[in-house]
Simulated assay, not measured.
Amino acid sequence: MTDLTQLEQEYKQVQADLKSVGDTLKGYAEKSEKEIKAHQQLSEESKANADTALAKFNELQAKLNDITQKLERPQDNPKESVQSLGQMVVESESFKNANMNASFRGSVRVKAPRSAITTTTTNIVAPDRQAGIIVPPVRRMTIRDLLIPGTTNSNSIEFVRETGFTNNATTVGESMAKPYSDITFELINSPVRTVAHLFKASRQILDDVSGLISYIDGRARNGLQLAEEKQLLFGNGSGSNILGIVPQASSFTPSLSVANATAIDRIRLALLQAVLAEFPSNGIVLNPIDWAGIELTKDNEGRYIIGNPMDGTTPRLWNLPVVETQAMNANHFLVGAFNMAAQIFDRMDMEVLISTENDKDFENNMITIRAEDRLALAVYRPEAFVTGEVTPTA
């Protein structure tokens, strides 16, 4: 058995175990609700069982994250190097069997693994034919990479969220009653949402494999990423929208008062706020404008505080990676334990459909390309995320 096969089997087993523990937690939550209504408190046995299940759930989530990262890690064999979405489409059996060229009629459907959503490649051959279309630069998406990865076969995700914990643990004398700590839960349902778009291309691009690869990578994948990133951050949960992280995050409320606090100070205080919520942050999200402002900060002698303009610097602040994305509103930040407090669930692999029979494609000698994926977001601990203004406004 190869290491990859073994990892895949472990991945499936951990997913099954997570579902089982999740169902158990759901049962405890329902039982706890009944006990509170009947006795105004939880029994010691119920609390102990819930604590054990929660600990197991967190342990399995960490294990799932580790296995997923190993599965999606590029292999050492160059023949198995990661492909871009466009390359996956043109090298798929569906595409090859259709013998697609400018005289092709019909449609072809191709599915790509979820890793294609965030993976890019730098060895794409530039197209020889100039179609008169300037492909926009691909913006690196990183919010998805910060989150716990997952998959689902359902149309919604149900999970138990701990909504409060009052720690009443203390020293107890012999024969004295032990105090109860107060833990409250609620059952959350997060529906799977579809992110999709269509766009046109000239039929002649079917004769240009390199051009088609570049076009799919530049439009299909990037378009989905742009919409997905905005949804993961700011979706309001209504209609077909995901309920994003920022609407659920805690507002920035510093525990310390710092005179003349800078943007760097305020972010450090936000990290402290997350630590006090018992979920230390693993990332910082900023708009590129705000990150540039922080990088340009100088001391009294004109020296840059962060990085060296000659050598560049990996975006980091307070020993944490900085994600700079235009999906984040300017003059706002988000910090949080992305790798523990939230998880993304992919309902299906990314799908690309190429058709010559949509709308007026036959009349206009065009093709239609549709790209879509389906996903849900679970935020297990909203207070693990903190959002606020980089520079306070009046």
Results as ranks from 00 to 15, higher is better:
2 T>E: 14
6 Q>F: 02
7 L>S: 04
8 E>R: 05
11 Y>L: 03
12 K>N: 00
16 A>D: 10
24 T>C: 12
24 T>Q: 07
26 K>R: 05
27 G>L: 09
40 Q>S: 03
50 A>W: 12
58 N>P: 13
62 A>R: 02
66 D>K: 10
70 K>G: 01
73 R>N: 09
75 Q>H: 12
79 K>Q: 11
81 S>Y: 08
81 S>G: 12
85 L>C: 09
90 V>C: 05
91 E>I: 10
92 S>P: 15
106 G>Y: 03
110 V>F: 01
110 V>I: 01
111 K>D: 07
111 K>G: 06
116 A>T: 10
127 P>Y: 09
128 D>P: 15
135 V>F: 07
135 V>T: 02
146 L>C: 05
149 P>W: 08
156 S>G: 00
158 E>A: 11
167 N>I: 04
170 T>F: 09
173 G>C: 03
177 A>M: 12
178 K>A: 11
182 D>F: 12
185 F>D: 01
188 I>Q: 03
196 A>T: 13
196 A>Q: 15
197 H>N: 11
204 Q>N: 13
204 Q>L: 09
214 S>F: 02
219 R>N: 04
220 A>C: 00
220 A>K: 09
230 K>G: 00
230 K>D: 08
233 L>T: 01
235 G>P: 15
235 G>V: 03
239 G>V: 06
240 S>K: 12
240 S>P: 11
246 V>M: 05
255 S>K: 11
255 S>V: 06
259 A>N: 05
263 A>F: 00
263 A>N: 00
264 I>T: 05
267 I>W: 02
268 R>F: 09
268 R>K: 15
269 L>E: 11
271 L>M: 08
286 L>A: 00
293 G>M: 04
293 G>N: 09
293 G>D: 15
293 G>T: 09
301 E>N: 08
309 P>G: 08
310 M>A: 15
311 D>H: 14
311 D>C: 07
313 T>P: 05
317 L>E: 08
318 W>I: 11
325 T>W: 07
328 M>K: 11
332 H>K: 13
333 F>L: 08
334 L>V: 06
335 V>A: 00
339 N>A: 13
344 I>S: 04
346 D>Y: 15
346 D>E: 10
347 R>K: 14
350 M>N: 10
356 T>K: 08
357 E>H: 02
362 F>I: 11
370 R>F: 07
372 E>C: 12
373 D>R: 03
378 A>M: 09
392 P>S: 10
392 P>A: 09
394 A>T: 05
